[in-house]
C-alpha cells in the first residue's frame, strides 16, 4: 500500500508544471524515504531529478518499494481538477496498474477521486557522482528566469562566465549581442534577494537557451536558484522545494567540435 498526502494541491501542481514541458512521462520511485523521479528529456541532453522526502508530506505510507510510470500530460489533466487549497492524496495498491488521486476540499464537503492507468517505462537511471563544482552561484530564481527569457531573444545559446567578481550571461546573434552582469551582493536585507558566488576556479560554459528556459518553469517553487558549474561537465540548476525536497536539472554544455 502506498499513500502520500499533501495539505494543498498547489505544490504538486507547481512540481508538475516544472517537469511536464521537458518530459512526456516519468517513473516515480516510491520508498519509505520518499518519492524520486529521474528522467532524461527526449533528446537526452538534459536530465530532471526530483526528490520529495517522506517527512515533507502530511501523511506518507509506503509498505513496499513501488515504481509508478506516469504519463505527465494525463497527470496534468487530473491535477487541473484540483483546487489549489484542496488536500491531495496519491494512493496505489502494491503491484497495481493504476494510481488514484483523491482531492478533498477544505470543508470536506467535496471529495473527488481520479484513477489513472500506470505505464511500464524503460528505466534508464544515470549514476550522478558527487561532484565538487568550480563555481556555485545562488541567486533569486525570478532574476535567473528573467535573464534566460531576455537572452533567448538574441541567440540559441547563452554563455555563462563566472569569476569571483560576479557572474555574466551573454548571448549574441543576428540582432546583436547582450550581456547581463551580476555582482555578488553583500549585506542584503532579505536572504532571497542575495547573489552569492562560491568560486574555486573561474568557468566559461555555453548552454542552450531553450533548456534553461524550460528549467525556469520551476521558479514558482523557490525564491532562490542554485547554479553549479565546472568545465566540461553538466550544469546543475537546483530549486529547493521548502520542507519537501528539491528539483535538479542537469544540462550538458555545448562543446566545440
Amino acid at each position: 500500500m502506498f499513500e502520500a498526502r499533501l495539505n494543498n494541491a498547489t505544490t504538486l501542481k507547481k512540481i508538475l508544471d516544472a517537469i511536464k514541458d521537458l518530459l512526456n512521462e516519468g517513473t516515480f520511485d516510491c520508498s519509505d524515504s520518499g518519492i524520486q523521479l529521474q528522467a532524461m528529456d527526449n533528446s537526452h541532453v538534459s536530465l530532471v531529478s526530483l526528490t520529495l522526502r517522506s517527512d515533507g508530506f502530511d501523511k506518507f505510507r509506503c509498505d513496499r518499494n513501488l515504481s509508478m510510470g506516469m504519463n505527465l500530460g494525463s497527470m496534468a489533466k487530473i491535477l487541473k481538477c484540483a483546487n489549489n487549497d484542496d488536500t491531495v492524496t496519491i494512493k496505489a495498491q502494491d503491484n497495481a496498474d493504476t494510481v488514484t488521486f483523491m482531492f478533498e476540499s477544505q470543508n470536506q464537503e467535496k471529495v473527488s477521486d481520479y484513477e489513472m492507468k500506470l505505464m511500464n517505462l524503460d528505466q534508464e537511471h544515470l549514476g550522478i557522482p558527487e561532484t565538487d563544482y568550480s563555481c556555485v552561484v545562488r541567486m533569486p530564481a525570478m532574476e535567473f528566469a528573467r535573464i534566460c527569457r531576455d537572452l533567448a531573444q538574441f541567440s540559441e545559446s547563452v554563455v555563462i562566465c563566472c569569476t569571483k567578481e560576479g557572474v555574466k550571461f551573454s548571448a549574441s546573434g543576428d540582432v546583436g549581442s547582450a550581456n547581463v552582469k551580476l555582482a555578488q551582493t553583500f549585506n542584503v536585507d532579505k536572504e532571497e534577494e542575495a547573489i552569492v558566488i562560491e568560486m574555486q576556479e573561474p568557468v566559461v560554459l555555453t548552454f542552450a537557451c531553450r533548456y534553461l528556459n524550460a528549467f525556469t518553469k520551476a521558479t514558482p517553487l523557490s525564491n532562490q536558484v542554485q547554479l553549479s558549474m565546472s568545465a566540461d561537465v553538466p550544469l546543475v540548476v537546483e530549486y529547493r522545494i521548502a520542507e519537501l525536497g528539491h528539483i535538479r536539472y542537469y544540462l550538458a554544455p555545448k562543446i566545440e567540435d
Binding site: 537526452h44 544515470l126 549514476g127 557522482p129 545559446s157 555555453t206 553538466p234 566545440e256 567540435d257
Partner: peptide, 14 residues
C-alpha cells in the same frame, strides 16, 4: 561550431 553532447556521455547508466 558548438555541438550539444548527450547526458550519457557524462554519467554512466546505473
Amino acid at each position: 561550431f558548438l555541438s550539444q553532447t548527450a547526458m550519457e556521455t557524462f554519467y554512466a547508466t546505473r
